[in-house]
């Protein structure tokens, strides 16, 4: 049975009902993408909310609606079926990707324009009206099986007594660690907007002593800079790792060091090789509640 934390389950329910605001939804979707268990829960809750939707009285559309829609359909290309699952999230190597918007704001291009600008042969990014929620909705119904398998394997790894964060290739494993933290019985998510429109979510588990930051829409830095993570407890500021971001703006980053509930996690921009203490104002700081 489900061992998802109460916080996760409540957020899943609010999400299925459409009761999260845009930032909360985007943050939850970043987490959702990594947890098959959470996906199953949302899938099931959505079926329930869908029934609420189906219970409203039907209203006949005006006669012209179908006509104009069919005309649009005849002129609008469709997204091709996805190729064999390769990338865990959106395709990143597609030729169309250079033109693909990487920020929520840029996603809001008119649907038709976005579609016709996309070469039909490319495994295109989802060119919907671009709300993060819709993007992930599409992603949701086409989860590559490989990622689900990888996340399941990660859980197996954890219960085998090996902690994935200690494995050799940390970049490949941050997603897997995130899946574990999400599945922890005391997992919590706290989200905040980052200056510039990005979203940041901190997923943490006191019992695992691990926290993971998930970003969407984060700006790329110049090559002599890096993002720095900090655990802040009272006056004490401990470095918790450096990371960079590519044009996708999406990052899943496991923090170095032990997570203790009640800690504040801050992010600053530092020189590429890091600093012993923050040298700039945090771009975002997320507080956690004490256990």
């Amino acid at each position: 049975m489900s061992a998802l934390s109460n916080d996760m389950l409540e957020t899943a329910a609010a999400y299925a009902l459409g009761a999260l605001d845009a930032d909360e939804a985007a943050a939850f979707e970043s987490v959702l993408a990594t947890s098959p268990e959470l996906q199953r829960e949302v899938e099931s809750l959505r079926e329930v909310s869908g029934m609420l939707g189906a219970a409203t009285a039907p209203v006949a559309p005006s006669a012209g609606l179908k006509q104009s829609l069919m005309a649009q359909v005849a002129a609008t290309p469709q997204l091709p079926r996805e190729q064999a699952p390769a990338a865990p999230t959106e395709p990143t190597a597609a030729p169309s990707d250079a033109a693909a918007p990487s920020h929520a704001a840029a996603h809001r291009a008119p649907t038709l324009a976005a579609v016709s600008a996309t070469p039909a042969a490319a495994p295109a990014p989802i060119p919907m009206s671009g709300l993060a929620s819709e993007k992930a909705n599409a992603r949701w119904f086409s989860r590559p099986a490989s990622l689900v398998a990888a996340a399941a394997a990660a859980v197996a790894l954890f219960f085998g007594g090996v902690f994935a964060a200690d494995l050799v290739n940390p970049a490949a494993n941050d997603q897997q660690v995130l899946a574990q933290v999400v599945a922890a019985p005391d997992a919590t998510v706290a989200s905040s907007e980052v200056a510039g429109g990005a979203t940041a979510s901190l997923v943490s588990s006191e019992s695992l002593g691990v926290s993971v930051m998930v970003f969407d829409g984060l700006d790329e830095l110049s090559s002599d800079e890096a993002y720095a993570l900090w655990y802040i407890t009272g006056d004490e500021i401990a470095p918790a790792g450096l990371f960079t971001v590519d044009g996708s703006g999406e990052v899943v980053q496991v923090l170095d060091g032990e997570f203790v509930a009640g800690t504040v996690v801050g992010v600053t921009v530092e020189p590429a090789d890091g600093s012993p203490q923050p040298t700039s104002e945090p771009i975002v700081a997320i507080a956690t509640t004490e256990a």
Partner: peptide
């Protein structure tokens, strides 16, 4: 219109 465009992303194994 979005349904038309993105129908290929619907996975009948994952929901109705």
């Amino acid at each position: 219109l979005e349904v038309w465009q993105t129908a290929s992303r619907f996975d009948p194994n994952k929901g109705k």
